[in-house]
Amino acid sequence: MKYINLPLTKDIRKSLKPGEELLLTGKIYTARDQAHKRFCESLKKGERLPISLKDNVIFYCGPAPTRPGDAIGSCGPTTSSRMDTFTPQLLSKGLAAMIGKGRRSERVKSAIKRHGAVYLIAIGGAGAYLARRVKKARPIAYKDLGTEAIHELWVEDFPVIVAIDSKGKSIFKRGGKDA
């Protein structure tokens, strides 16, 4: 178990190994399907993104509504592969890591390697457990998207596992090959 303070700098990324369990503390951003689509549309038009990607972490998550008095509602990861078409472009803009669940495409894996990023996974379906590790949350962009808006989360000891390291090595196997 390794304690990591965010942002996730290149040096930290380089030190991470597949299968390593991490506890993240600091600021992360949620973004899922529609936010990714908007990011890439903005980049295509040459517009600035609403958040800086450099050394930052995107969490593929659409949290459940927050009850009064709580920091956030249930908030586990969603399936990463749906973001595969958008991810290489975000990595080229400096995105350090993504937190999700499940496998990534070959294209994403080689982009991770090319940019020295990492892919992290959180345990899917453990939204109630993970919510306890989020201390503050607020929507900061694309608010019209509701749960799919970009939320800024302050996490403390947020548990993730390194699924693809900065050299493109994955913990998932498919038919004996990395997947």
């Binding site: 998550c61 659409g62 949290p63 459940a64 009850r67 709580d70 509602g73 249930s74 908030c75 586990g76 969603t78 899917g124 379906g125 453990a126 939204g127 109630a128 919510a131």
Partner: peptide, 10 residues
Amino acid sequence: SEFIPICQDT
């Protein structure tokens, strides 16, 4: 015990 959803995808 906290009466919150098991998973955020309800």
